[in-house]
Every structure is written in structure tokens, then in C-alpha cells.
Amino acid sequence: MSASPWKRLKQSEAFNGYVMVSPTLIYAILMLAAPLGMIVAYSFFKDGYLEVIHEFTFENYIQAWTDPIFQAILFRSVLVSMLVTLVTVVLAFPIAYFISFVVPAQKKSLWLFLITIPFWTSYLIRVFQWKVILNYNGVINSILTGLGIVDQPLQMLNSVGAITVTLAHAYAPFAILPIFVSLEKIDRSFLEAGRDLGESPFMTFWRVTLPLAMPGVVGAVMIVFIPTIGDYVTPELIGGGKLPMVANMIQQNMLKIDNKPLGSAIAVSSMLVVAVIALVFLFLNRRFLRGPK
């Protein structure tokens, strides 16, 4: 009288869920998980001339980590990423707060629209425009010398600062949106309750708004920090190739030098460093991420 086991299975929610997710999952396994696995495997292989020798070795890691250039590049990459993340998030928070708390409800989408438009225009050209702005004979120097504020144009390009400003610009919406979303979720009566219980506006912000917005801030930090460390274009264009980051080094080894095992080891190493920093950061903020959802 009752249904067969096969029919039971077919009707079960888990089975249907797996069937539904399978096309995307298979794609992700083939195109992402397997290649990532390959990179890890390659990083333990030996590099022969024009080919890769499938022999297990730690040689690549030893070579990478004892290389002062790699150390310097990795250090610079982490430093730039942290700086970019700090600048981006610190600038983004007041904007997200402004849109969520000050802008009237019917104008919020317009503001979000305004914030996201620059993000939808060519990344390469946006990065290059910062070169135009920061150049020796660029926009800022033209204004400064034109107004007589400086005699000599300032040398701003090819610096960590220039790279930071450019990346902070590129990742702005990625930081604003998660913070905005978590600010929007805050029940406004919490703030009234804070005020009602005798807190000043600043203390209400400090004790109520900020902790409740932290999941968004943490999300913003993650979504800016992790991809930034792998940015290739900005060091190339704004750093003038003189301040390479890990992505440039990976590209060098993979294409120009054609040492794929070493390139893989560098890629895996930098991903591990990023992962460790991200996990430490998440761990430090764990108390904000608990609770419902």
C-alpha cells in the first residue's frame, strides 16, 4: 500500500534539492574545484624545461618563501589590501549610514543607483583615469600648479598611496552595499529605545547601531580584502610595474617565465595567507556574527 523506496526517495526534499542544484554544482566542480585542486597539485610538482615533471616536491614552496622578492611582494600585497580595505570601509560606512538613515525612503534607490553606476563602467578605464588624475601633468597637478599652490608638480603615481586610492575607488560599491543592507535591517525602534533609555545620540550609535551593523562591515571587509590582494591591473597601470603585487608575480611565472609549479606555489601560498588573515578577522569579530542569521 505504501510507496516504493525509489518513489520515497524521489519525493524526498533532499533528493529534489540535489537534483536541482546539480547542474550548477557539477559546473563548479569541473571549472572551479578541479582546477583549484590542479593548482595545489602543480605546486608540488617539479618544473622541467618546457614541461612539468609529475614528481612530488616541496621545492617550489621553499624557493618561493626563501625568495626575498616574493617576501617583499607578498608583504606589499597584504599591506596594500589592508590599507585599501581600511580606506574603503571607513569611507563607505558614512555613505551607507547616510543612505539608510538620512535619505528619505523613496530616494534610497536613486542614491544606490548613483553609487553603483560608476561600478558598471569599464574597470580598466576607471583605473586608468586615476593615472590621468594623479599624473605628473595630470588633473590634480594642473590644478595645484595653476592655482600656484605648488611650484613643482607632485610625484603621486607609482606609489602605494596611488594604488590604494585607485582600488578604494574600484571597490566602493562592494563595501557600501553590505553595510547598507545591515543598516537597513536595524529595527528603528531599537534606536528609539536606546534614546529612551537615556543614551546620547553618539552612545546610541556606538552601543546599538554599530554592533548591529557589524555583520555588514565584516562582509564588506571580506569582499574588499580578498579580491584586492589578487588585483593585477592596478599595480600594472598605477604602480607603473614598479610595485608588483602577487597577481603580477603569478602572471610572470605562469606566462612569461613559464614556471607553472612555482607560479602555482605562489598562488597557493598567497591564498593561504589571505585565508588565514580572513579567518583571524572573522574570529575576532565572531561575537557580532552570532545570533539569528
Binding site: M38, Y232, I250, M254, A267
Partner: peptide, 18 residues
């Protein structure tokens, strides 16, 4: 499935290339 959202594109590109 959502990993490419945070994974640096260079990693995706390099691993696929290999």
C-alpha cells in the same frame, strides 16, 4: 558555487588555464 565572488580572479584564471 559562490566562491568566485571572493576568490581573486587571477586564481580562477590561472587554475582554469592550467
Amino acid at each position: 558555487i559562490m566562491l568566485p565572488l571572493v576568490l581573486p580572479e587571477i586564481i580562477v584564471a590561472v587554475s582554469l588555464l592550467i
